[in-house]
Amino acid sequence: MGYFLLRRTVGFLATLLTITVVVFAVMNILPGDPALTILGIEASEAALEALRQQLGLHDPVVVRYFRWVGAALTGDFGMSHAYRVSVAELVLERLPLTLSLAFGGMIATVVLALAMGIGAAANHRKAGDWGVMFLSQIGIAVPSFWAAMLLVLLFAVYLQWLPPGGFPGWSDPVAALRSLVLPIAALTFVQAAVLARVTRSAALEVMRLDYVRTARAMGYPRRRILWRHVLPNALVPIVTIVGLQFATLVTGTIVIENVFYLPGLGRLVFQAIANRDLPLVQALVTLFAVIVVTVNFLVDVIYVMIDPRLKTRA
């Protein structure tokens, strides 16, 4: 187990390093001059050159890479070219919103999906099961941006119950939460559908096992069997999927933040690319990738801990 963890950790760190190289390389073949993007089409060549000097765009690529990674290790991600404040400040400013979206979406997803999945498994081959399965099939089939469009149309434009988008800031918590309802709903809709299906099939697998059948035959209450025996044993695939869904959720927040114009990281990355704001793009893409890799790593570790049988071949 210790050896396994060590090997995984080394692999994890190597992955992180590779990601920084890949991101840096891609960002540096990206066409487009940050100076031109900032100063626009009326700028003189002298002004552009002066700005390029200021932004340090003339150093060789390798020098810039090591300077970037070296500084990043000390927590310094450089200055945003476009916003002229530190990247760390920009990211920290927007991180709470994206995290609220991601965690809000994840919690809502897990709660909804477990209830739907276990419920469906318990009613296997009955109307309830078909109903849940059908709903989750539809959920999977609906693009989140379309779900978001429909939600805005219904709740913001026709009913006017909730704001159509934007974010009032945390100083007014009620308004802040209200503006997160529709985005989280749009995110949850799709994610919960995926997880509900996994939960259902995992639960069904467990229910086929002998000890559950025995427990049933011995007349244990159904609810107790479900929550005490089925759910814990079905957790392995569920945890895996929840972990992997984080990757989808990250993508999801990028799209959803752009549909609801929420000032989070997903919107920032789009703006940063359009602005040719290299330090910011590098930091954000790396950040997204690091989140996903870290979650993957944790899932692997948890996976082995829950199900030690697998570590021999894993």
Binding site: M149, V152, A156, V157, Q160, P163, P164, G165, G166, N258, V259, F260, Y261
Partner: peptide
């Protein structure tokens, strides 16, 4: 000033009185 890039959201915000 409120930054609203999406035209549909802009219209919705006007209609909602924001």
């Amino acid at each position: 000033f409120r930054f609203i890039a999406d035209p549909a959201a802009a219209a919705a915000a006007l209609l909602a009185g924001e």
